[in-house]
Every structure is written in structure tokens, then in C-alpha cells.
């Protein structure tokens, strides 16, 4: 087994009367996109800030490539990039000036700063906005600038705290693609998110954090297989007499849950093939026109709900 990039051993952090991290054990692998998911206030950001040494754990050890973080702060600062929930740059400096400033603080040579800026601007697609004041950028551009600032030192690890928070779906997709590109370029990414579907499509590995405790770690597939027997049948008919359709399927006891989502209906069942067959017969009998039908594996959302409800 490969040596983990970051090892978190029995880390506990308490703020006043709140135990934010409770005996957390976690291994973060090399060169992957590692997601930490959890509800707001579950300790995700505290865990990220503990990894970079900003928050000092009350007990436990965090190591980076075998070196204790609290004793290797210089290395941590040089090798890590951090994109927090807020945009950490100067609004009164333009894109290039912000990158130059942080590049200098990382101790990079002017030449290296220049070449990094050139690459980054292209990478985050901000070439045309090089001379634009940060405060005048759109929110998506600002997020990209913040990520660029986090990457100016060519970090080995990029930590991103809720990178898609407050973004519209289009911008969110942009950032997700960008994160993938960053990882493809060889940078390990550790991110937090409360948007589970996003983490599911983006992360190679996920840790589920709840009330300061790591409930489970694994690939999205592993987690889904572990915690959900159900499959999802998504269907859409016209004219869409869903109540009657569901009534016709009422003798099928394997259907555990029915959800209406927009014009679609989702059926949760461990016997998807049988239910799907019955569904198609009912639709046909009722003279409904089938517009769309889709058989899906359970979402991370379900896994999460399942895990959290157990606790």
C-alpha cells in the first residue's frame, strides 16, 4: 500500500464547549481528489485548517509525507495551497498584481512568478482579465483568481474549502472542471463540500464527517455499495397521472420509497428489475406515454442520510 500523503491520527479539537474534531483518524492518499463531506458545522473546515497547521489540535498528530505538520510549518507553507470559502486576495489589486504579490510572498523568483502567472492565467482562463481589478471581476472569475492564487507556488497539495459554494450551476461546473484539471496536472486536491452529488462526481475518495467524527471513508462506489441496497428508478410520463401509476404498483412491496422530483418520479427499491418490468406494464395499460426512464444506483446523498441517521 502506498504511503498516505497526509496521515491524521486521533486528532481532537475543542472550541470552548464544542468538540469540533473528535478522535479523527484519516489517511489522505497521494495525487487524488479527496473529499470531506458533512453538514455545516461538522468540522470540515477545522480539519482542513488543522492539516495546514493553522488550527493546532488539542490532541493527536497530523503528518505530511511522514513529517509532523506542527514541526514542519515552513515545508507545509511552501508545499500547500489553500483556497478557502472566501476569496483571499486584494480587491484593489488587479489579477496579475495579486498573483505577483502572493508569488513573492512564497519566495519565488521574478522569472518563475512570471512563467507561473502566464500558465495559471491560461489555466484558469483569466488571460483577458490580467489587468482587471479583482473587485471588478465576476464571482466565477473571482473564484478562479482565488484558485490561481492558491496555485501560484505550484503546490503539491491544494486544499479547497467549499470551492463551489455560492456559485450558480454553470460556474459550479466550471470550477469542478478546473479542479479536475488541477488534479490531472499532478496536484493532490483535498476539498470539502456539503453538496454531495458534486463530491460524488468529483472525488476519488470521500470521508464522511459528522459531529467531528469520521463516519466512513472510501470511494463513492464503495460507500454506495456499503450503505445502500436500493436502486433508483427515475421515470417521466405524459400526461403524468403519477398517483394512479403508484396506486397500480401498490402491491409491489419491494418499493420502499416514492419521491416526486419536478416532472419525474423516483422509486427506491432493492428489486429494480422486477419493479421496472411492472412499471412498464402499468404505464402501457394506462395508455401513458413514456417520455423518460432511467435506472440508477443509489446516490451519495442516500449513503450520507443512511450513515447520519444511524448516529
Amino acid at each position: 500500500m502506498k504511503t498516505p500523503l497526509i496521515e491524521i491520527k486521533k486528532v481532537t479539537k475543542i472550541f470552548g464547549r464544542n468538540t469540533v474534531l473528535n478522535d479523527v483518524d484519516l489517511n489522505i492518499p497521494q495525487n487524488k481528489i479527496f473529499g470531506i463531506i458533512g453538514e455545516s458545522g461538522s468540522g470540515k473546515t477545522t480539519l482542513l485548517k488543522s492539516i495546514i497547521g493553522f488550527v493546532k489540535p488539542d490532541s493527536g498528530i497530523i503528518t505530511f509525507e511522514g513529517r509532523e505538520v506542527s514541526r514542519s510549518m515552513e515545508t507545509i507553507r511552501e508545499r500547500f495551497g489553500f483556497a478557502s470559502q472566501e476569496n483571499c486576495f486584494y480587491p484593489k489589486l488587479n489579477v496579475r498584481e495579486n498573483l505577483e504579490f502572493f508569488g513573492t510572498l512564497y519566495g519565488l523568483s521574478s522569472k518563475l512568478i512570471d512563467s507561473n502567472i502566464k500558465k495559471l492565467l491560461k489555466f484558469v482562463e483569466l488571460e483577458d482579465a490580467e489587468k482587471t481589478l479583482a473587485e471588478n471581476l465576476s464571482s466565477g472569475m473571482q473564484r478562479r483568481l482565488d484558485i490561481a492564487c492558491s496555485l501560484i507556488n505550484n503546490p503539491k497539495v491544494l486544499i479547497m474549502d467549499e470551492p463551489t459554494q455560492d456559485l450558480d450551476p454553470v460556474l459550479r461546473k466550471e470550477i469542478v472542471n478546473l479542479i479536475r484539471k488541477i488534479n490531472e496536472n499532478g496536484t493532490a486536491v483535498i476539498l470539502t463540500s456539503h453538496l454531495l452529488f458534486e463530491a460524488e462526481v468529483l472525488c476519488d475518495e470521500i470521508a464522511i464527517l459528522h459531529q467531528g467524527k469520521v463516519l466512513e471513508v472510501g470511494t463513492p462506489e464503495q460507500l454506495k455499495n456499503m450503505y445502500s441496497k436500493n436502486q433508483e428508478i427515475h421515470f417521466e410520463t405524459s400526461p403524468g397521472r403519477y398517483d394512479l401509476i403508484i396506486k397500480q404498483l401498490s402491491d409491489e412491496k419491494s418499493i420502499e420509497r416514492v419521491e416526486h422530483k419536478g416532472n419525474k418520479v423516483i422509486l427506491y427499491t432493492p428489486k429494480a428489475e422486477i419493479v421496472l418490468k411492472k412499471l412498464l406494464i402499468v404505464i402501457s395499460k394506462m395508455g401513458e406515454e413514456l417520455i423518460d426512464v432511467d435506472l440508477r444506483k443509489p446516490s451519495l446523498n442516500e449513503v450520507f442520510e443512511s450513515l447520519v441517521s444511524k448516529k
Binding site: 495546514i52 493553522f54 511552501e78 489553500f82 472566501e86 476569496n87 483571499c88 486576495f89 486584494y90 510572498l105
Partner: peptide
């Protein structure tokens, strides 16, 4: 108070 101060803090400066 600047949001950038956090980034300054985590640089090796």
C-alpha cells in the same frame, strides 16, 4: 480584516 490576510498568513513569510 482583509480576507487576503489568511493567505498571507499561510505563506512562508
Amino acid at each position: 480584516l482583509s480576507k487576503a490576510s489568511f493567505r498571507n498568513y499561510i505563506t512562508p513569510t
